[in-house]
């Protein structure tokens, strides 16, 4: 998602970024203010021009983004001087004189980081993830799973995120089907 007051910048960035086949600009806002209703759902990478807002507004906005998706990667689009305080809130900066290849590699670097944190080779589930998946499919809550496997709730959540990243399935009922199809649980266990 891109937020910038200039349609020239938005369209230019869109063209450059979408030349990388793994990126798709799903939404953009041509706006002078980030206080307008911005729909954050489903956004992995955000490019936002902080020039448009006061530090307090910007801080709150970044906080909202991280609340919606704590793994969201946020880049500042730097078209003019931006205070260090704001720059420290974001994961990277795209400058106006960056070459297209530089922009793509900046985006690839961060998306690699988020993926390598999440994914091991071949997108196969680890045995721990399979255990978590089976319990999710049986309808257990994160807290129950944590107790059963002697893990912290935080770790369970991290496993669940990895499972979704590897399978591309988000809903519990979708994950249940995945577990059944891969013989991780049997139909009788489900009943």
């Amino acid at each position: 998602m891109i937020i910038d007051p200039s349609i020239i910048i938005i369209e230019g960035l869109k063209k450059i970024i979408e030349s990388g086949p793994e990126f798709k600009i799903t939404r953009f806002y041509q706006s002078n203010s980030i206080t307008t209703n911005v729909l954050l759902h489903g956004i992995d990478i955000l490019l936002v021009n902080p020039r448009m807002s006061k530090t307090s507004q910007f801080t709150k906005f970044i906080h909202d983004c991280r609340t919606e998706n704590e793994n969201m990667v946020i880049f500042a689009l730097q078209t003019s001087y931006v205070p260090m305080q704001m720059m420290n809130l974001v994961d990277g900066v795209i400058e106006m004189d960056d070459d297209p290849s530089v922009i793509i590699s900046k985006l690839r670097n961060v998306s690699c980081k988020t993926e390598s944190a999440n994914l091991s080779d071949n997108c196969e589930l680890s045995s721990r993830e399979k255990e978590v998946l089976v319990l999710v499919a049986k309808g257990k809550t994160n807290k129950e799973i944590a107790e059963l496997l002697n893990l912290s709730v935080y770790t369970v959540i991290a496993h669940r995120k990895n499972i979704t990243a590897k399978t591309n399935i988000k809903s519990v009922s979708g994950l249940t089907i995945y577990a059944l199809l891969n013989n991780l649980i049997s139909q009788t266990e489900m009943n």
């Binding site: 489903g42 399978t167 591309n168 399935i169 988000k170 809903s171 009922s173 979708g174 995945y178 199809l181």
Partner: peptide
């Protein structure tokens, strides 16, 4: 609602 539809295409 969108998530579930995407799950379905994957399955």
């Amino acid at each position: 609602i969108g998530d579930k539809l995407s799950d379905l295409t994957n399955i």
